[in-house]
Deep mutational scan, measured.
Amino acid sequence: MATGGRRGAAAAPLLVAVAALLLGAAGHLYPGEVCPGMDIRNNLTRLHELENCSVIEGHLQILLMFKTRPEDFRDLSFPKLIMITDYLLLFRVYGLESLKDLFPNLTVIRGSRLFFNYALVIFEMVHLKELGLYNLMNITRGSVRIEKNNELCYLATIDWSRILDSVEDNYIVLNKDDNEECGDICPGTAKGKTNCPATVINGQFVERCWTHSHCQKVCPTICKSHGCTAEGLCCHSECLGNCSQPDDPTKCVACRNFYLDGRCVETCPPPYYHFQDWRCVNFSFCQDLHHKCKNSRRQGCHQYVIHNNKCIPECPSGYTMNSSNLLCTPCLGPCPKVCHLLEGEKTIDSVTSAQELRGCTVINGSLIINIRGGNNLAAELEANLGLIEEISGYLKIRRSYALVSLSFFRKLRLIRGETLEIGNYSFYALDNQNLRQLWDWSKHNLTITQGKLFFHYNPKLCLSEIHKMEEVSGTKGRQERNDIALKTNGDQASCENELLKFSYIRTSFDKI
């Protein structure tokens, strides 16, 4: 039985969820670079991206490699990797027998973001014989899940209580170790020597080791999670996991709180800001991140802002960003909400898709409305799209047979046209069989910064309504002859009103 693990408890099935942008060198404390989270699957090609990484700022997932063999891993080693800020997950990587050479110096898994409450997941690794993470000293947050690894031993010899604050939620089941077939031998045991430290858990006094050649490092209890030197002297209180010299914040392997210019500090002093819960960055760093993602459509890219001495992905609820200094300031009234469309555009074809934009005031991208039916549609669209004030790209209304009016965009005031449909149009209306009105132009103002209007096959939309939009939106004169079809717009509506004058002759039985 794995020490510190839980057996036999019912657990939810383990679901495996399925960018080499360097964020800056980590400095003297770390020998390499800070790398983003990685999802490495199918083959070993991307694994080489770990070569210079000291910190993975995010998670590391290595999974679904069915053609790899043990010899493929023999020359692979990433000794610079010290810390993973989120979680480490391995799933069905064939041929991998140990992690001792792959990650010989991995010391800390912070667990800032977890995989279903777990910071370390080893699942269905069919050839893994031992973990071998002999320098792993601290899992700051989260638990361990090690399950269905039929060859995995050296679990009962690990004292997880020396690595985690609590072992109650560890789930370590259905491994070879369960069948008591392992016969784990710690260093020196074969020669009758006791080389590794022994600890007591559940009444068992057991030597602690990761492999037959690597003991588990056990520091004096007084050192807590700070770690200790090879001689057993406690590291500085700002260290986490390990250090090369005692009581020196510049000799830590990793930091308990924050890293700044080669030393570990309790908090980031001005003019620095907390970033990702582990390091200090200056304003320029946060500003660069903001600008890199301002026009990016890459998933996970955030326009970072500053709030409460932190550089964070977005302002919290009730705050909006001051564009001059990136500071989050309290909103006066309802907060603006910028919604970034991942692929640059979004099609609204149902109430469900409209709900995804609920509360958005600025759309960074283009909207395509293609709704053919739905219950209580006008009210639903207004509830979900009615706060949109600005669209950076274009607005396209296409084959939306259920629409009679666009009044559900009740606050839309600006279409920038930074991206144009077919390279020309910022407003595009095609084949809307029941569209009769755009907006009530006596109450609604709309500016279209650039781009043209396109109207074709809107049989109940009168040309007068379209011409009014040209005047109000500032697009009059931009359109070419064929942009607004004269014969297919309003051709099934009563669009022309003329005053009919009647004269009559009164007659009676005795007068003409």
Rank of each mutant, 00 (worst) to 15 (best):
T157M: 04
L90M: 13
S324G: 12
L63Y: 15
L128P: 00
P79I: 04
C264D: 00
L60F: 02
S323P: 14
G227A: 05
G95L: 02
H212A: 14
D248S: 09
Q216K: 04
T157G: 07
D165M: 05
G227D: 02
N170D: 09
A190E: 02
P336H: 13
Y171P: 02
V144M: 15
L63T: 14
P246L: 02
T250A: 08
S324D: 10
S213G: 14
N202R: 07
E57M: 00
C35L: 00
D247W: 15
Q303T: 03
L47W: 03
S317N: 05
L44Q: 04
I163F: 11
D86R: 02
Y87N: 01
R92V: 04
C252N: 00
V200N: 14
C239T: 00
S324Y: 02
F123L: 08
F258S: 06
D75C: 08
R145V: 05
C182R: 04
E168M: 08
I306M: 03
H302E: 07
Q245S: 11
G300N: 07
P104M: 01
F73R: 02
H236F: 01
L81C: 01
N308P: 02
M83F: 09
F116V: 09
F283T: 07
W210V: 13
P313Y: 02
I84Q: 00
P187L: 08
H274N: 08
K224R: 04
P313L: 15
P249F: 02
S166I: 14
P187F: 14
A156H: 08
A198M: 07
V218S: 09
S161L: 10
H59R: 11
L29S: 11
F116H: 00
V200K: 02
L131P: 01
A230H: 07
N257A: 10
F73K: 02
N135D: 09
S77R: 12
M125S: 14
K100I: 05
D178Y: 13
L50C: 02
L76M: 13
E130R: 13
C301Y: 15
S77W: 07
C328F: 01
K129P: 00
G58V: 00
I172H: 05
L81K: 00
Q299H: 15
V206K: 07
R297C: 09
C53L: 00
L102V: 14
S98Q: 02
H48C: 05
N322K: 10
V265G: 03
M125R: 00
S166T: 10
L289D: 03
N138H: 15
L88W: 01
K80Y: 15
N202K: 13
S77L: 11
F283G: 09
C264F: 01
F115C: 06
I56R: 15
M83P: 00
T320R: 07
M125D: 07
L76H: 02
L88G: 00
N179R: 12
S112W: 14
L63Q: 15
G142Q: 01
G300E: 08
G58E: 00
I172F: 03
G203T: 11
A190S: 08
G132R: 01
R263K: 08
P313A: 07
I139G: 01
H127F: 08
E33D: 04
K217G: 03
H274V: 11
E97V: 12
N308I: 08
E231L: 06
C35M: 00
K129F: 13
Q204W: 06
D159T: 10
D184Q: 15
F123A: 15
I158L: 10
P270T: 06
V55N: 01
S244L: 13
N105W: 02
C301R: 06
G241K: 04
D177S: 06
L174R: 06
T45Q: 02
F283R: 14
T45R: 12
R256S: 10
C53G: 00
T85V: 08
F283V: 15
T229F: 01
G241D: 01
G227N: 02
D184C: 12
V144W: 00
N308E: 04
S161V: 13
K193A: 03
I139P: 01
E314P: 05
M65W: 02
H59Q: 07
C215V: 11
L164N: 05
C215Y: 03
I146S: 02
I163Q: 02
W210R: 03
H212N: 10
V218F: 09
N170T: 07
S77K: 13
G262M: 05
S296A: 12
D169T: 06
C328G: 02
L136C: 04
M321R: 06
C209R: 03
A190N: 11
T68N: 02
D184H: 05
V55P: 00
G58T: 01
Y272A: 03
P336T: 06
P79V: 05
I222M: 07
